[in-house]
Simulated assay, not measured.
Amino acid sequence: MAEQDSGRWFLRTMIRKGRNTTGRSQREVGDEVDRSKDTISDWEKGKTDIPILAIDGLASACNLSAEICSYMKSVARARKNSTPIEADMRYNALFLALAEEYSGFIFKFDILIIPGPLQIRVYHDNVVRVIDPFATDEDLEDGWGFKEERAESLEARTDLPTVHFLIGEGALLMLRQISEEIYQEQMAHLRSWAQKPGIVIRILRAPVPVRLGSFDIYKPGRNKLASPPFVYTEIADSSWCISDPDRIAGYDEIRKMLWNLAIRIEDYHDDDRRDSLAQEHP
């Protein structure tokens, strides 16, 4: 079998998922794109690369959206050039959503915002709007639907992956300043998620350099359908899915350090913390 990487995995898994969702056989898809059943099978198994020129026809045959089709071509070009997958955050979120369906180990960290799959609707409507004032109502509505799908996908998994969420305390303090009511509702939701099998949520009170304020790590674990390891990180105008083993190892060391500094959400009570800060800064 050809060497696997996260980009190849995304392409072949997205095609297989789309084909299965439509209920079409490999032969039916092959007939539509003028390829043999064996060729479609080899593409889905990762034995051979899916040519960039074949992606439009495959996406149509598998009923994948124009957005997914466009992103697949970006992934294919990145693989061809042996570069990290760079795209806007919405595009690379498609990669993360697929990885969340199959990865055996998932680590998600953000110092200033609660990770998307853990958000409640009222948090999304109020806090995300504050953080992203340029988002339109349509953007926000589409974004919420996407988060719901990701949360439902994680909850539906029967293979019990290990999912670690690390949230900066600043995200909670900011939320409490915006609305005490939303804060209490969101915290109850987080504690409910922390009771699910395989889910661990910790709160990080320690300060973190801005450059390390947000990243995710995905590893296959025991799931044979999972992507090879990769790291996701972002800046204001772009984001990357990184497969380089040395860089993944570096991020993994940072993950371990931050995780060990954090406390479980079950043990987190910020009232004492706020009273202490008030006494320090009267």
Rank of each mutant, 00 (worst) to 15 (best):
D125R: 14
T136N: 12
G143Y: 03
R121Y: 11
V122C: 01
I106C: 07
D125T: 06
T136P: 08
G116R: 06
V130L: 12
F134H: 10
Q119A: 01
F134I: 04
P133F: 07
H124D: 03
Y123M: 04
I120G: 09
D137M: 10
F107M: 05
I131P: 02
Y102S: 00
K108W: 02
D137K: 14
V128C: 07
S103A: 15
F134D: 10
I114H: 00
Y102F: 10
F109I: 00
D137N: 11
G104W: 04
S103C: 14
L118R: 00
I114K: 00
I120N: 10
I131D: 06
L140I: 15
S103P: 02
P115W: 01
N126R: 07
G104I: 01
A135D: 12
T136I: 10
L118Y: 09
I120E: 06
P117R: 04
F134Y: 07
I106N: 02
I113N: 01
Q119R: 05
Y102D: 04
D110C: 03
G116Q: 04
N126H: 10
L98R: 06
I113D: 00
V130T: 12
D137R: 15
D139S: 09
E141C: 10
F107H: 02
F134L: 13
G116L: 05
S103E: 07
V130C: 11
E101S: 12
D137Y: 09
F109K: 01
R129H: 13
L98W: 06
A99S: 12
F134C: 09
E101V: 13
S103V: 01
I131Q: 03
I114W: 00
W144L: 12
L118E: 08
I120Y: 08
E101Q: 15
W144V: 01
A135L: 11
L98G: 02
P117M: 05
E101T: 10
Q119S: 02
V127P: 11
S103D: 13
V130R: 08
Y102R: 07
I131T: 13
Y102I: 05
D132S: 10
G143T: 02
I131M: 05
K108G: 12
V128S: 04
V122A: 15
D137L: 15
I120D: 11
F107G: 09
R121Q: 04
I131E: 14
